Simulated assay, not measured.
Amino acid sequence: MKATNDHTYQRGLPLFHAIPLIGALLLFLGTTLSDYAYSSTYHLQWVVLASWLNIGGLILISLAFLSAILSFFHARQRSIMLLIYPALLLLTWILSTVNALIHFQDAWALMPISFALSMVVTIFSGASAWVGFSRFGHGGKP
């Protein structure tokens, strides 16, 4: 009798999907930290930086959402649990778009809501990254 060593490896997220997902989380975290720095110092450079970081995160979360939709339709078994991940990405995209529109206002007008919304976007981006790297995000069994 011959002994065989069969390993089954868990397939992770594709590289084109993982990089925008983590990049968006880091850019949204930078947006939150820039909004905090503006609330502490009132230097306008922090508002401009937060606006650019938010737009970069919005572009990357859009790429991650498109990749999640493609992987959902490419999955062998579709279940309702696989829709949680694209739904979180879509909610993050919507909140980030609202945050970008708020950042286009005057610097004095955006402060009370901008910092709070940046924190919410960062939390949702982190939750979507967590779900994306879990087994639910890429078509694996729970």
Score class of each variant (00 low, 15 high):
4 T>N: 07
113 I>D: 13
77 Q>T: 15
39 S>I: 06
99 N>P: 06
105 Q>I: 03
87 A>K: 06
119 M>C: 15
132 G>Y: 00
7 H>D: 04
138 H>D: 06
132 G>K: 06
88 L>C: 04
25 L>E: 03
76 R>G: 14
2 K>W: 02
101 L>K: 13
62 S>N: 13
68 A>S: 09
26 L>F: 06
52 W>F: 10
110 L>F: 11
2 K>S: 01
137 G>C: 12
49 L>S: 08
138 H>P: 02
69 I>E: 06
47 V>R: 00
24 A>W: 00
38 Y>Q: 05
26 L>V: 04
10 Q>I: 10
27 L>R: 03
77 Q>Y: 12
40 S>A: 13
17 H>L: 13
73 F>M: 11
30 G>E: 05
113 I>Y: 12
107 A>T: 03
129 A>D: 01
7 H>E: 11
54 N>W: 05
124 F>L: 12
2 K>Q: 00
43 H>R: 14
14 P>T: 08
43 H>Y: 15
12 G>P: 03
103 H>Q: 08
141 K>H: 15
75 A>Q: 09
5 N>I: 11
69 I>F: 02
104 F>K: 06
93 W>G: 07
132 G>C: 11
20 P>C: 02
99 N>Y: 08
129 A>N: 03
126 G>Q: 00
44 L>Q: 12
34 S>P: 05
115 F>L: 13
35 D>I: 06
1 M>G: 09
125 S>C: 13
124 F>Y: 09
54 N>H: 07
5 N>F: 11
1 M>P: 01
118 S>E: 00
109 A>V: 14
100 A>E: 03
17 H>Q: 14
86 P>T: 05
133 F>R: 05
89 L>P: 04
126 G>W: 04
49 L>M: 11
14 P>L: 13
44 L>W: 03
97 T>F: 10
33 L>G: 00
77 Q>F: 14
27 L>M: 04
29 L>Y: 03
102 I>R: 02
67 S>F: 02
24 A>H: 01
6 D>L: 09
21 L>P: 05
80 I>A: 12
61 I>T: 01
47 V>G: 00
8 T>I: 11
53 L>E: 08
119 M>N: 10
30 G>T: 09
123 I>T: 12
44 L>A: 11
135 R>D: 15
80 I>T: 11
60 L>D: 02
18 A>C: 10
30 G>H: 10
4 T>D: 08
65 F>D: 04
38 Y>A: 01
42 Y>S: 13
46 W>L: 01
17 H>W: 10
78 R>M: 09
114 S>H: 04
82 L>A: 10
55 I>A: 08
53 L>W: 07
7 H>M: 01
110 L>R: 08
71 S>Q: 15
95 L>V: 07
116 A>Y: 13
98 V>N: 09
101 L>S: 09
94 I>M: 06
56 G>K: 03
